Simulated scan of single mutants.
Amino acid sequence: MLGQLNDTQIELLLTAQVTGHLACQQDGIPYIVPINYVYRKGAIYAHSGPGKKIDIMRRNPAVCFEVDDITSVFRWRSVIVQGIFEELTDIAEKENAMQAIIHRIMPMADSPAAHPSHGITENEYAIGTDIDLIVYKINIISKTGKFEQA
């Protein structure tokens, strides 16, 4: 049976997952990458180093984000978000977002001090001193969800 997720189910799936797929596009050419994220206050917060994804989103901030939970080919849930990329510039907002991301992904890190590219250091207040992290959020315009269960 296929069905639509309701708003509560969408919120729960966005909150429960830690990795999703971010799609952006430049000159009609789509580009999609997996990202670690945290869902807070109705927005998706993430970070990145400089590169293609950030360059594209700075030029065209319209993005799509997808997250799913797949148990089997006939048992899954998926959410698709349409949104707008916003690079965070306020230091306090960047620190709050990075702390939330770190606390969300830390339990999944096999050696926390060994992941500076994700802003995970032995001292979370050292974030950004050695690494050029770009912290951003996706302001959500719309979100939909579907599921299948046998």
Rank of each mutant, 00 (worst) to 15 (best):
D90P: 08
K137Y: 12
A100R: 06
C64F: 04
I32W: 06
T71F: 07
A16L: 03
S72Y: 01
H118K: 07
D69V: 09
A23S: 15
E86I: 07
C64L: 06
I10H: 03
D55Q: 13
I70E: 04
L88I: 08
I140N: 01
H47R: 00
L22M: 14
A100S: 14
S72R: 04
G20H: 07
T129V: 12
A126R: 00
P34I: 13
M1L: 08
A114L: 10
M106V: 00
S111G: 06
P50R: 11
D130R: 15
G145D: 14
T144N: 13
R59Y: 13
Q25Y: 07
D69T: 13
T8I: 01
R59Q: 13
D7R: 00
Q149S: 11
R58T: 10
G128K: 09
T144I: 14
R104Y: 07
D90E: 15
G51K: 02
T121L: 12
H118S: 01
N96M: 01
L133A: 04
Q9E: 13
P61T: 02
A46S: 15
L2P: 00
K94E: 05
I102W: 04
P61E: 10
I54T: 06
T8V: 00
Q82H: 04
V79C: 15
G49T: 07
S72T: 10
I10N: 02
F65S: 04
A97L: 14
V67D: 02
I91G: 02
T71C: 09
A43D: 09
I44V: 06
V67N: 05
K41L: 12
F74D: 15
P61R: 07
P116G: 12
D90A: 06
T144C: 05
V18T: 07
I91K: 04
V73H: 08
R75D: 15
G3E: 13
Q99R: 14
S48E: 15
Q26V: 04
I29R: 10
E93T: 08
K53D: 02
D68Y: 11
A113W: 01
K52V: 09
E93W: 03
V79S: 07
D27A: 07
N96D: 10
G3L: 09
S117D: 12
S111C: 12
K137P: 08
A114R: 02
P30Q: 10
Q99L: 11
N123S: 08
H115S: 14
Q26A: 12
I10G: 01
L88T: 04
E11I: 08
M98W: 08
L88Y: 05
G119E: 10
V79K: 10
Q17Y: 11
E95F: 03
D69K: 15
I70C: 14
Q17V: 02
I56C: 05
G49W: 06
A97K: 07
G51E: 04
S142I: 02
A113K: 06
Q99K: 12
L14H: 12
T121V: 00
P112C: 09
M98R: 04
G83T: 06
I29W: 14
D90Q: 03
G49F: 12
V73T: 11
T121Y: 05
K94C: 12
E122P: 07
M98I: 03
R77F: 05
R59G: 15
D90Y: 10
V33D: 15
A114H: 09
E66V: 00
Q99C: 04
S78E: 14
M57S: 07
I140C: 05
